[in-house]
Amino acid sequence: MAKTMFTPAGPVHLHLHDLPAGLDLGPVVAVDTEAMGLDARRDRLCLVQLSSGDGAAHLVQLIPESLGGHGYKAPNLAALMSDPATVKLFHFARFDVGLLHHALGVEIRPVRCTKIASKLIRTYTDRHGLKDLLRELLGVEISKQQQTSDWGALELTPEQCAYAASDVLHLHALWAKLEALLKREGRLELAQACYDFLPTRGKLDLLGYEEPDLFHH
């Protein structure tokens, strides 16, 4: 069952429990998540946002069984996240990939990450947040006002849905800009090696190796 709303960001389709069967989001799907906090081992996954880059967003609200939902029993969403023929495009994929793996029990591959791309080629700045990237590279302004709201609420507000959608609606265009810069600077192959490692990095974080970092002295 889906609820469709029209926001300043674009049309948003809110699905309860899972993606509908047969939904085709194309060969590259932009993905983001909202959770109760930033510890994937402690904080539950509440919402998964997706977009095919067509100006519309699909939000999947995951509700615990104790609150009348299906928990993380979302077979259509899990199949998409693990589909080797579908590229999953994130901003800060390290967290999202680990969180999705922990919740859905599948390995998220293949992936791309606009934050890693930015850090590899925008070495003239330390501002790699999505808001900064969209402003500089696309001239798009997004609001982060709802970033710290309660994503575990059973009824999400239109403002929350619009915010969640804005995090995926522009990722395809942003990736096109960053991919061109990676090619220009000769770092596309290096970026790809980083993306290939991200599922393992997420698993290390889930095991507690975020701190101390295995790769730190």
Rank of each mutant, 00 (worst) to 15 (best):
K3C: 08
T4Y: 10
T4F: 14
F6R: 10
T7Q: 00
P8V: 11
A9V: 04
P11N: 02
P11K: 06
H15M: 07
H15Q: 08
L16R: 14
L16A: 15
L25F: 06
P27C: 09
P27M: 13
V28W: 07
A30L: 04
A30R: 02
V31P: 00
E34S: 08
A35M: 12
G37T: 12
L38I: 04
L45S: 14
S52N: 07
G53M: 02
H58I: 12
P64L: 07
E65K: 11
E65H: 09
G68P: 08
H70L: 11
Y72P: 09
K73E: 15
N76T: 14
N76Y: 15
A78T: 05
M81T: 02
D83Q: 07
D83A: 10
P84Y: 05
A85E: 07
K88Q: 01
F90Q: 00
V97L: 07
G98K: 06
G105S: 06
G105W: 05
V106H: 01
R112P: 01
C113P: 00
K115P: 10
K119D: 08
L120T: 08
D126Y: 12
H128R: 11
G129L: 01
D132I: 05
L134Y: 02
L138R: 00
I142W: 07
Q146H: 15
D150R: 13
G152K: 01
E155C: 09
E155P: 10
L156V: 13
C161Y: 01
A165K: 05
S166F: 00
V168G: 00
H170I: 06
A173M: 14
A173S: 06
W175P: 03
W175D: 05
E179K: 10
A180P: 10
L181W: 09
R184G: 02
R184F: 13
E185R: 15
L188I: 12
A191L: 02
L198K: 01
R201M: 09
Y209Q: 08
E210Q: 14
E210A: 14
P212C: 10
L214Y: 14
L214K: 03
